[in-house]
Design a protein around this nucleic acid. Structure first.
Lengths: 191, 191
DNA sequence: AGATATTAGCTTATATTTAGACAATATTTA
DNA sequence: TAAATATTGTCTAAATATAAGCTAATATCT
């Protein structure tokens, strides 16, 4: 990334980022990441190439930005009240819902999974990072001294993303209710 | 208008015009034209006020641009083959269809009609102009020497817009098939 | 294999957009 | 009605976008 998206951005910069984000998101429904060219992105986003390179090093750079944005965006729907099991389930369900709503994207990601599975692992990394951040924020409130909070939140987010991966790739037709039950059992070591 | 939209426009200019056009179009579904502020437009379009004034004198200026764009856009769906009655009907039907698909806009226009009816007359003017342009283009091909082509095309476009106005304001529940029949009768002086 | 076309990055001078402040009106509220 | 608030339209220097065009790498075709 050629700019720092955490700093204050002008309206124009936000607009431009959004346009490229949306363009990439739409293109990922339509074709393989490898088949997407910078020209495709610019055409879809209605920006010239020069502008693309003002913001991103290359299309992979944009992809990473998109993943991190999506991760934040999905989980921003969480109420930021105190931590409990219900919230972990909520995080899991938000993630499941996202892929349920974006089946074309998921299909594309799955397909690319054959080669080196870089699309999924890339995205999953950002999802896990964001989930971890949110779990940790809430975790630290009701800090249980028996386990370091960082370790605990990492355990939780790993569990959530693992569960997500299993649902999406191994049991795509599983009922969400059942999945929630499994997740709760794993959380409570109730096997 | 501060710029000439008939000249070549940069990608950015096209993007900006589109954003303001869409913003105004959406706002006209939501509230009265008189209640729409430049700030509303800028917020919806995600552009700063300064940019708005780079393009338009004021919101009425934008409205006129929107009407002319819509008029062109609706009628651009016409096949540009030779003129006949079917094409006149087609023009009429495209216009009816547009308002059928944009009932909120129409309701808003109708409501403003109480005061000084400036919204409808403004829009109708642009629709008539564009219809006339298209009819004339095709008219001149099978030129009938008994009547000047310009007069004839003006007669046709006046008839179409008059018919449209009657359908929208006087008989909003009329069947399109019936309206088409009326139009044909008027065309053929078959009364 | 060799010809042709597309793409990736990058550069630069020019054009456009931007935030924020401003005074002048208009509108709302008390 | 008077004061508070919102809106308009303009202005600037700084930030950004832009077209055009370049080379090298890669893909596609014959």
């Amino acid at each position: 990334m050629k700019i720092d998206v955490t700093k204050h951005l002008t309206m124009g910069a936000k607009r431009t980022l959004k346009a490229f984000r949306v363009a990439m998101f739409e293109l990922l429904r339509e074709k393989d990441f490898d088949k997407i060219t910078v020209n495709d992105i610019c055409q879809k986003g209605e920006y010239p190439r020069a502008t693309f390179y003002n913001y991103f090093d290359d299309k992979l750079d944009l992809l990473k930005y998109l993943w991190s944005y999506i991760a934040k965006d999905i989980l921003s729907q969480l109420p930021d009240d105190k931590q409990n099991d219900a919230n972990l389930i909520k995080i899991f369900n938000l993630l499941v819902q996202f892929f349920h709503e974006n089946t074309a994207l998921l299909a594309n990601i799955k397909q690319s999974n054959g080669a080196d599975s870089h699309l999924w692992h890339n995205l999953a990394g950002y999802l896990k990072h964001e989930a971890n951040r949110i779990v940790y924020q809430n975790c630290s409130i009701d800090s249980k001294p028996s386990i370091p909070a960082k370790l605990l939140s990492r355990f939780y987010s790993d569990l959530i993303i693992g569960m997500l991966e299993w649902c999406l790739f191994e049991e795509p037709n599983i009922q969400l209710k059942i999945a929630d039950e499994y997740l709760l059992k794993l959380l409570h070591n109730d096997l």
